[in-house]
Simulated scan of single mutants.
Amino acid sequence: MVAVTDVGTGGVRDDASTAELVRRAAEQVSTLVRDELTLAKVELVEKGKRAGIGGGLFGAAAVLAWFGVGLLLTLLVVLLDLVWPLWLAVLVVLVVVLAAAGIAALLGRRQLQQAAPPVPQQAVDGVHADVDAVKTAVREGRRA
């Protein structure tokens, strides 16, 4: 028999069999895996939200560009009906709308870049840390 510290009571138990130690280790690994999967899920939901916002901003850019096309057509109509060169004013509005579309596209691209890569990086880092901790514990256990 091996002297084992009982985590639940804080005392030392001399009656822990190898089978019981393996059972406890399996339970702890199972809990660890569940916790890491939960972290991965939370992280992926956050990245999904960012991807949704980026996609929405790209959609806004497309709508603004469509209005730009509408303003271009309006410019052609106004040119026929004006005495003062109002077409210049419409042209300025057209440029402003297309510039707004460009800004929305840039903001959407930034949001999509923040969402990529769709890998739960915190969870991956946590798993690496857990694996390193287990390796260290095994090495130290062999020395003892």
Rank of each mutant, 00 (worst) to 15 (best):
M1T: 04
V2H: 04
V2P: 12
V2L: 08
A3S: 13
V4L: 06
V4T: 13
T5D: 03
D6R: 06
D6H: 07
D6Q: 06
D6M: 03
D6F: 02
G8E: 11
G11I: 08
V12M: 06
R13Q: 06
D15H: 00
D15I: 01
E20Q: 11
E20A: 12
V22E: 11
V22F: 04
V22W: 02
R23G: 03
A25S: 11
E27N: 02
Q28F: 13
Q28A: 14
T31M: 09
T31V: 09
T31Q: 14
R34A: 14
D35R: 15
E36P: 00
E36M: 12
T38Y: 10
A40G: 02
K41A: 15
V42R: 15
E43H: 01
L44T: 08
E46W: 12
K47Y: 08
G48F: 05
G48A: 06
K49P: 00
K49L: 15
K49T: 09
A51L: 14
G52I: 05
G52Y: 07
I53A: 09
G54A: 12
G56H: 07
F58N: 11
G59V: 03
A61N: 01
A62G: 07
V63G: 07
V63I: 14
L64K: 05
W66T: 15
F67I: 11
F67N: 07
F67E: 10
G68I: 03
V69H: 09
L71R: 05
L72D: 11
L73P: 00
L73R: 10
V77R: 10
V77E: 11
V78E: 05
L79C: 11
L79H: 10
L80F: 15
V83C: 03
W84G: 07
W84R: 09
L86T: 09
W87S: 09
W87N: 05
L88F: 08
L88Q: 02
V90W: 01
L94A: 08
L94C: 13
V95A: 14
V95R: 06
V95T: 14
V96R: 04
V97Y: 02
G102A: 08
G102D: 05
G102E: 07
I103D: 01
A104E: 08
L106K: 14
L106A: 15
L107H: 01
G108N: 03
R109W: 04
R109S: 05
L112V: 12
L112E: 10
Q113T: 14
P117V: 01
P120Y: 00
P120L: 00
V124D: 04
V124E: 12
V124I: 13
D125V: 09
D125G: 05
H128I: 13
H128W: 07
H128P: 00
A129G: 03
D132H: 10
D132E: 11
A133W: 01
V134P: 01
K135L: 12
T136F: 06
A137Y: 01
V138N: 02
V138G: 00
V138C: 02
V138L: 10
R139W: 05
R139G: 10
R139E: 09
E140A: 07
E140K: 06
R142V: 03
R143I: 01
R143C: 00
A144K: 11
